[in-house]
Deep mutational scan, measured.
Amino acid sequence: MDPFVVLVLCLSCLLLLSIWRQSSGRGKLPPGPTPLPVIGNILQIDIKDVSKSLTNLSKIYGPVFTLYFGLERMVVLHGYEVVKEALIDLGEEFSGRGHFPLAERANRGFGIVFSNGKRWKEIRRFSLMTLRNFGMGKRSIEDRVQEEARCLVEELRKTKASPCDPTFILGCAPCNVICSIIFQKRFDYKDQQFLNLMEKLNENIRIVSTPWIQICNNFPTIIDYFPGTHNKLLKNLAFMESDILEKVKEHQESMDINNPRDFIDCFLIKMEKEKQNQQSEFTIENLVITAADLLGAGTETTSTTLRYALLLLLKHPEVTAKVQEEIERVIGRNRSPCMQDRGHMPYTDAVVHEVQRYIDLIPTSLPHAVTCDVKFRNYLIPKGTTILTSLTSVLHDNKEFPNPEMFDPRHFLDEGGNFKKSNYFMPFSAGKRICVGEGLARMELFLFLTFILQNFNLKSLIDPKDLDTTPVVNGFASVPPFYQLCFIPV
């Protein structure tokens, strides 16, 4: 058959498939802009700032609406009420993970971030239990974070109060905490193996944040037939998995079943207990991918939040002064901060919360999916439909947070200066898919920041009023603009 005829037939089939998918069930789905064949609503979305586009569309179609990214149908949730109703009140029905062709290629359905069903539930339950087990290797997770915080302070001392970009050092600290939990080992910041790991993690975040990856996920045929950065992403992930597998083999040879040292040991012990169960989800494949998931999810998000926190503290020296006064009063100079201190430091706690609220790190979270046909607000959402959640619409709700575009710790303080919780605080998402490392991340943010401010004054290279804190939105995360500062020993 003539190649031209084959091409026309293929394009015609794709067009018909697109029209059929977009028209099927439209009477039951939430409203939304009319999609174009094949490309859907992509032309109506700013790929570099999806969150802003969703906010604009919500003003037209309401808090629940339908979009098509290519052939992929998505239902968008915008605003606290619908997000709570879906992710919390109907948590089980909305607990699936959205379709990610690239991740599915890399992870093969294993791990904790992109798995679904029984596998996801069992691996998540085990990971939560293990991360909360403060007795691994007779050292609590808090001990590990405190140790890394001391190392971080010593690295900052080496800058000798000269101007520096904190990106690298602030990236090393949370990565080392995860390494300590998974591998029972922290690395020197100049260790070549550690630097290679950091390089792969950072490069992957840069790649994932590009519009090209959005295109690959919406048109998965590209993955096999086109060159691009997605190939580098898959190569980096394969490198990390190979490295983790080597460490798993080392653990198998040296493990003491009665004295687990780290996450890998705990997983291997669980595998041993379930070795007679042919349906067990505790396999080497799941261990390797879960460890890679924890490394990827637990490094860049925390380091970016820390980097943004220091920029905001530079911009608002009056806030920094209040935090340091609270540190001096509650902790002093002669001991290290600990998590028990947080309950006695409402202002510092409010500042950490406000940093996370203000920066809105992951504006749309990772997409969910419905696990069955769901009736939601008089609409029928078919099983498997991807759910896109606007966390921006919750964290920047102007009824809950007056002047949401302003950095103001009073958003989390009552009139008496006591810490005030808010149900709208969802930087880790909400419901059954809430970030498994939430507790660890909150511990790291509090301890790293208090250790830094206990030991250093922060000095800006320019007038604080002239510092730009506008986030650089890159399609996946909101990151701070480049800046330098000086760490002046107190």
Score class of each variant (00 low, 15 high):
Val82Ser: 08
Thr348His: 01
Leu245Lys: 09
Phe168His: 15
Glu142Asp: 06
Gly475Thr: 10
Arg150Cys: 11
Leu311Trp: 06
Val473Leu: 10
Leu311Asp: 02
Asn231Tyr: 04
Arg73His: 07
Arg150Pro: 02
Lys322Glu: 08
Arg186Ser: 05
Val472Arg: 13
Lys235Arg: 14
Leu391Asp: 00
Ser58Asp: 03
Ile387Trp: 00
Pro337Val: 07
Leu15Pro: 01
Glu438Asn: 07
Leu29His: 07
Arg105Glu: 03
Leu195Gly: 12
Ile462Ala: 12
Asn56Arg: 15
Leu313Asp: 00
Pro367Asn: 06
Ser280Met: 06
Arg139Asp: 14
Val490Ser: 05
Gly62His: 00
Ser12Val: 14
Asp265Asn: 00
Val473Thr: 15
Pro227Asn: 07
Gly96Met: 07
Pro409Trp: 02
Ala86Val: 04
Ser18Asp: 15
Lys121Asn: 12
Ile123Arg: 01
Arg333Ile: 13
Cys175Thr: 15
Leu29Asp: 07
His230Lys: 07
Tyr308Gly: 07
Thr348Pro: 01
Cys372Thr: 15
Thr371Trp: 03
Pro346Ile: 04
Ser140Phe: 07
Thr386Gln: 09
Leu156Met: 09
Leu14Glu: 00
Leu467Thr: 06
Thr305Tyr: 04
His396Asp: 04
Thr229Asn: 14
Ile257Trp: 10
Cys172Leu: 11
Phe456Leu: 04
Thr385Trp: 02
Lys190Cys: 09
Gly475Arg: 14
Thr302Ala: 09
Ile269Asp: 07
Thr210Val: 06
Leu197Arg: 05
Pro427Val: 10
Asp224Pro: 11
Trp212Ile: 06
Arg26Pro: 07
Val323Tyr: 02
Arg433Trp: 01
Cys175His: 06
Gln324Trp: 04
Leu440Gln: 00
Met406Tyr: 10
Gly475Glu: 03
Gly137Arg: 12
Leu311Cys: 07
Arg307Trp: 04
Lys185Ala: 11
Ser95Glu: 14
Val208Asp: 05
Leu453Pro: 02
Cys164Lys: 06
Cys175Asn: 04
Leu413Pro: 00
Cys338His: 09
Thr450Gly: 05
Val64Trp: 00
Ser390Met: 07
Leu245Trp: 10
Ile215Ala: 08
Ile181Val: 14
Ser242Val: 08
Pro33Gln: 00
Thr450Pro: 02
